[in-house]
């Protein structure tokens, strides 16, 4: 039903706040950084953490789809960007584009941005597979009470409506409603009865739900929050290191180290400026390292 499947490793055994903080910080850093090495560092950390969480197979699926986008971005950028000066290929005149000139800078820029895209997609993948959506939602529920409840309700009702749809379609097909044959237009028109029944049933159900919520005192005063997630040393450790990663990332950005100018000529890479990339990548690897130790040494498992 849900993409989330709990697995037995440290990444899944973190407090949802820790998980969300890690994901949030990687996301922020991926937007701050434009230096390809910094971005590659992020990508590497996220990849290792995803591997540690046991979702590498799912991530590969995401990557297959992302590579197509990457190719697209690189091709478009190299074809249209004119700011680069180091021409590596110059070709014939092409309508609309003009003369075909491919510069190394445009190619590099396309690749650099693709790394950012891959980081964002990877972190999204980690969120989808490793964070219990329910808990994430509850984490936010303190912020926006009613709207979060509305989301919770729709998530809860979604599988119910899918079942309704299936059941009602079957029933109406037995009454001669053609849903599998005929033209697209006929099938759409024939599905009107099913949609109307679902609408009517949904309205009845939502009234009953509202009644049940009202009877349990919803909206009768300030709410409190039931919270069963516990804090463990692993959460503090990871929160501390991700905070360091964020601080170093911001520092690098302020110092201008994590920026990179592709045009007109690729900037020289100063090894000293890469210190920030190293530290952020290493600190963001800590969850994976902890997981490795957690798996290997029962003593560590019991301590953190």
């Amino acid at each position: 039903m849900l993409t989330y499947q709990s697995k037995d490793n440290l990444i899944f055994k973190l407090h949802p706040f820790t998980q969300m903080t890690f994901i949030g910080i990687v996301f922020i850093l991926s937007l701050i950084f434009s230096h390809p090495i910094y971005l590659l560092g992020l990508l590497m950390s996220v990849w290792v953490v995803i591997a540690a969480s046991g979702n590498l197979a799912e991530w590969k699926g995401y990557m297959k789809f992302s590579i197509m986008m990457v190719v697209f971005i690189v091709v478009i950028n190299t074809l249209f960007a004119r700011a680069g000066t180091t021409i590596i290929y110059s070709g014939p005149e092409i309508p609309l584009i003009g003369s075909l000139e491919i510069s190394m800078e445009a190619l590099a820029y396309g690749l650099g941005m693709s790394v950012r895209l891959l980081v964002i997609i990877s972190i999204f993948c980690l969120y989808t597979y490793a964070v219990n959506p329910d808990k994430a939602l509850r984490l936010f529920s303190r912020l926006g009470g009613k709207s979060v409840l509305a989301i919770t309700l729709s998530v809860r009702l979604f599988p119910l409506m899918m079942k309704d749809f299936q059941r009602i379609s079957e029933i109406q097909r037995c009454r001669g409603v053609k849903l599998a044959t005929g033209s697209w237009w006929e099938r759409t028109r024939n599905s009107i009865p099913i949609i109307s029944i679902m609408l009517l049933s949904c309205m009845e159900r939502s009234l009953q739900l509202a009644e049940s919520m009202y009877a349990r005192g919803y909206g009768s005063g300030p709410r409190s929050y039931y919270d069963k997630d516990l804090w463990r040393p692993r959460d503090y450790l990871i929160l501390i290191v991700t905070a360091i990663a964020l601080a170093v990332g911001i520092w690098s950005a302020v110092m201008g180290w994590s920026a990179f100018s592709y045009y007109p000529v690729l900037e020289q890479i100063n090894p000293l400026e890469l210190i920030g990339a190293g530290i952020t990548a290493l600190t963001l690897l800590v969850p994976a390292i902890l997981n490795w130790g957690w798996m290997k040494w029962p003593i560590l498992k019991s301590r953190i």
């Binding site: 005192g217 009768s220 005063g221 709410r223 929050y225 039931y226």
Partner: peptide
């Protein structure tokens, strides 16, 4: 079906209690 609000049983039991604060 039409009186359960939350996604899992534990939260369902807690729902009314949360409403009471």
């Amino acid at each position: 079906e039409s009186q359960l609000v939350m996604m899992n049983v534990e939260q369902e039991i807690a729902f009314g209690l949360e409403n009471l604060g």
